Simulated assay, not measured.
Amino acid sequence: MSVEQLGQALTVAAAGRVGSEAIQDIATAYIDFVRQHPGLYEASFHAPNRDEPQLAAASTVALQLLLDSLQPYRLSEAAALHAVRGLRSLCHGFASIGAQGGFAMNFEPSESLHFTISSFLDGLKQRSKDS
């Protein structure tokens, strides 16, 4: 199942860590998965049908991995879910633009990804300080 394969790739990338390093590696693994398995990614992209327990469980693994990785940011439950959506959107957009050849400038795409995710995480750090 494509959702399980994506979840496995993200789990391996995080390797039991949390925080910024884990999130950076998860984002890289997400982009790599899309690049290596575009058809599988497309099949896993939609929201899971809760009437399919195996699909719902596989989707929950990836969600929980991201929530666990975000724990050091001390976000409320709602804020953490918003952050997961934001991170997923960043990764999806980055992967989609890359797949269409949109990163033709003389900048290394992996450096741009790292910069973007770092900026996102800096925003989460600031948000947790303001809470």
Rank of each mutant, 00 (worst) to 15 (best):
L10M: 00
G101T: 02
A43L: 14
L81S: 01
A56P: 06
A13T: 02
S131N: 15
F115C: 08
Y73R: 05
S118R: 14
L40R: 05
S76C: 15
H46T: 02
P109S: 10
L113T: 10
S112I: 13
A15N: 15
E77R: 12
H114D: 12
G98P: 13
A57V: 00
L66F: 09
L66E: 01
L90F: 05
L121R: 07
S112W: 13
S96C: 10
S2H: 01
A57S: 06
V3Y: 05
P53I: 02
I97P: 06
V12D: 13
E111F: 11
Q24T: 13
A14W: 03
H37T: 10
S118W: 11
A95K: 11
I26P: 15
L87S: 02
T116P: 10
G98Q: 15
D32T: 01
L90T: 05
G19Q: 13
R74A: 09
F45G: 08
L124W: 05
R50L: 12
N106W: 10
L63V: 01
L124H: 07
F115V: 03
S110T: 04
G93E: 11
T60A: 10
Q100A: 12
R35Y: 04
P72K: 08
A78M: 12
D68Y: 07
V34A: 13
T28P: 04
G93V: 01
L113I: 05
Q8G: 00
V61Y: 03
A29R: 08
V34S: 07
L121A: 01
Q24H: 15
R85Q: 03
L81K: 12
M105C: 08
N106I: 04
H46F: 09
M105E: 13
K125I: 00
S76M: 13
N106A: 15
A22P: 14
S69E: 11
L70V: 14
N106T: 09
A47I: 06
L87Y: 09
V84K: 10
T28K: 14
G39W: 09
S44Y: 06
I23K: 13
M105I: 02
R50I: 06
